[in-house]
Design a protein around this nucleic acid. Structure first.
Lengths: 202, 202
DNA sequence: TGCTTTATGTATGGATCGTTACATAAATAA
DNA sequence: TTATTTATGTAACGATCCATACATAAAGCA
């Protein structure tokens, strides 16, 4: 039931593609560091098109954050949920984190939320609640995976699911920061198996 | 041998105090978000005084980063090194991290390097090397503390000092990010003792 | 064919950005 | 005192910032 026919002149660019380009600019340069010239240049559109389509700079920024939360941020969580057993799940989660921290297709390093958006917390209306929601959402997903393993009997009943979930999320932040700083990818990968064992120890 | 007598009109403000004020502004607003108006206003000086004393905006920024690395960033490391035994050392380190992430005297939240400076990596000349050096320095200090305990026989010879050092640093990053986001301080403190046990487990 | 609707490109608005001349003030040195 | 040195405050510079007015172009609808 998607009505592709719309009144008026059709836009020449793709909404989502241009939004991803905008996200890349914000990711690399931050909110204040990303000028309208940078944004329109990367998006391949003019200023008035940007304002007509996305609103002002702040609204474009919030839309970029929402896109990151829906697309990029959930990739490790998907890997966590899809793996067969919990050990493979944690391994896949961390490897996906390292991958996105060092080899993101946009060329930007680290985590968009941790390395760029965090700077605008308390500065740009609407950012705080989004970042807080992203943290809660991720930790809940991780905890749910642990709990599912407990319920299936693969982890002991007294396994501290909540504590380990927040620990895994903190480890994620550590990897993301090191990715931004430029730490060698292989150095991070070598640590993964040892950390997985720790996360599952009782 | 400090020669307090200097030729020329003496400056009306204290170099270090004003630098800390500048750091607070950069910390809260980021490099691009901190305008010269913001900076001079917080520092209590005029534009020309700022340029004559610290150089341009970028040089002031780098001086603020250096100050943070020498003063604030090392507080948890000092706590780590001064504590009697390794368990108390880790506890003190993490509590100091949480304290600085949530109750820094400047009013800013999180870690200056992780929450603000990270955004300017690859954007402002001189930032990359400073952040990389800070990471290496911190991990070396932590590893040295572990190694000292191994040498004293308080930790087994096969204790993975390097891996645990980088893990502790990643946990630090996690706490700092959550401080920036606004996670409740007590929630973080409650996790500390459990994490200390994990960090020392073999 | 108009009429309406939406998107585009040009061109520019006022505000703020970082930075610097310039003249003045306050200290030491001769 | 006079000369030298350094810091201060005012005032302004060109550049860039985000945002928008305006006229034009391209679609569906009547």
């Amino acid at each position: 039931m998607i009505d592709t026919k719309k009144i008026g002149r059709p836009r020449k660019f793709d909404y989502g593609t241009a939004l991803i380009k905008a996200m890349s600019v914000f990711w690399a340069k931050g909110y204040e560091g990303a000028s309208l010239r940078d944004l329109t240049g990367a998006m391949g559109i003019t200023g008035p098109s940007l304002y007509a389509t996305y609103g002002d700079k702040r609204e474009l920024y919030l839309k970029a954050i929402d896109h990151y939360c829906e697309a990029d941020a959930c990739a490790p969580l998907v890997a966590l949920e899809e793996a067969e057993n919990i050990e493979e799940a944690l391994q896949a989660f961390l490897l996906e984190v390292i991958h996105s921290a060092t080899d993101h297709e946009s060329g930007a390093k680290g985590c968009f939320l941790a390395s760029s958006v965090a700077t605008s917390i308390g500065q740009v209306d609407g950012v705080d609640s989004r970042v807080q929601a992203a943290v809660v959402h991720a930790e809940e997903k991780i905890e749910a995976r642990f709990q599912a393993e407990i319920d299936k009997g693969n982890l002991p009943k007294h396994f501290p699911a909540k504590e380990r979930a927040s620990l895994l999320f903190d480890i994620r932040q550590g990897y993301m920061f090191r990715g931004r700083v430029g730490v060698d990818k292989e150095k991070m990968q070598n640590e993964v198996s040892g950390r997985v064992k720790m996360l599952l120890a009782c």
